[in-house]
């Protein structure tokens, strides 16, 4: 038996083990926070000097390593376009799949389990493999197939482009949209569905007029998360559409485009003089970071508000 005095002395943390445990776990938290802070302050402090309105709003000359004339408008446009087009494809597909899974599918059926397994797998596939898939399927198979059909001599579809990069990203972010949508569909009380059905609505009418409007915040969250994820990804677009340099902004779906993330990579690894070009590198990274963090913060906020509303409603 432990003497009473000892347990009092060791206090509420439960002895040396408890204190060591507390310190270690607290330290782990601190280390992670320190990394985050170091990263953010580095990018911010080194990126701010070169960051200006001119920097984001002009088209750079061909030699984009030149510190004075460097600018990122084409990259901002390229990245925005590719996530926008991706959204157009991934949202309907993801939402419909989630609706099927929550509202229609028999959870015990092998097909349903197959779909769930497929979604989980797609979520785990490395992003570079999506790049290969995009190259093999969209560019080489679909693109060249289309070129063969239209009989054009020069490749129009059969080369990397905005369209193929966006589609590749759509495939990659599909699980994000499905999972977020499913979560919000499941959180809708079944009483609402029953009420609608009991009033003589068909299942589809119920989904369309009651379920989907209620799930809208969750669907939106999923969309923003997908966009945030895709905006920062470089690997899937390396072979499917990103260009080292283009003289003009992309005007057609079949154009190649410059991309913020890819540009960061180029500036970091192919600069003739890394120290000299560091300011524009950090400024470009800052632009990308602001974009993705804003999107993610938006999604987190939206979701927490949604969960709170839900808790109050129940």
């Amino acid at each position: 038996m432990r003497p009473i005095g000892e347990s009092r002395r060791l206090g509420r943390w439960g002895g040396p083990a408890g204190i060591v445990g507390l310190i270690l776990t607290g330290l782990a938290t601190l280390v992670l926070l320190a990394f985050l802070v170091a990263l953010l302050t580095t990018v911010l402090s080194k990126g701010m000097p070169a960051f200006s309105w001119r920097f984001v709003s002009t088209i750079p000359r061909k030699d984009f390593f030149d510190v004075d004339s460097a600018a990122i408008l084409p990259m901002v446009v390229g990245t925005s376009l590719r996530v926008l087009i991706m959204t157009v494809f991934v949202m309907p597909f993801g939402v419909i799949t989630a609706v099927y899974l929550t509202e229609y599918a028999d959870p015990a059926s092998p097909f349903t389990r197959g779909i769930r397994a497929a979604i989980g797998n797609i979520a785990g596939v490395p992003s570079i493999v999506f790049g290969l898939f995009g190259l093999g399927f969209f560019v080489n198979f679909l693109g060249r197939g289309l070129d063969g059909l239209t009989g054009s001599g020069v490749p129009v579809f059969g080369r990397p482009s905005l369209l193929w990069a966006s589609l590749t990203l759509a495939v990659m972010t599909l699980p994000v949209v499905i999972v977020a949508t499913e979560e919000s569909l499941r959180s809708i009380p079944s009483g609402l569905r029953e009420a609608s059905l009991a009033l003589g609505a068909t299942k589809l009418e119920t989904v369309w007029t009651i379920v989907l409007p209620q799930a809208l915040p969750g669907i939106l969250t999923g969309g923003i998360l997908a966009v945030g994820r895709a905006a920062g990804e470089v690997a899937p677009i390396l072979f499917t559409g990103a260009a080292y340099y283009t003289a003009e902004l992309p005007g057609r779906l079949t154009d190649q485009f410059m991309d913020l993330g890819y540009h960061v990579y180029v500036l970091a690894t192919q600069s003739p003089n890394v120290d000299q070009t560091a300011p524009i590198l950090y400024a470009t990274a800052l632009a990308l970071l602001v974009l993705t963090l804003a999107l993610n913060a938006g999604a987190i906020l939206l979701r927490s508000r949604m969960r709170r509303n839900l808790r109050e409603a129940v």
């Binding site: 990018v43 945030g228 960061v264 970071l289 963090l293 987190i300």
Partner: peptide, 23 residues
């Protein structure tokens, strides 16, 4: 703390790459 650590998820890997490469 929780949302702050989760913020890491929003940092593009290419930016993390720059951080590792240069800092």
């Amino acid at each position: 703390v929780k949302p702050t650590i989760e913020l890491l998820a929003g940092i593009p890997s290419v930016v993390l790459g720059v951080f590792c490469l240069l800092v």
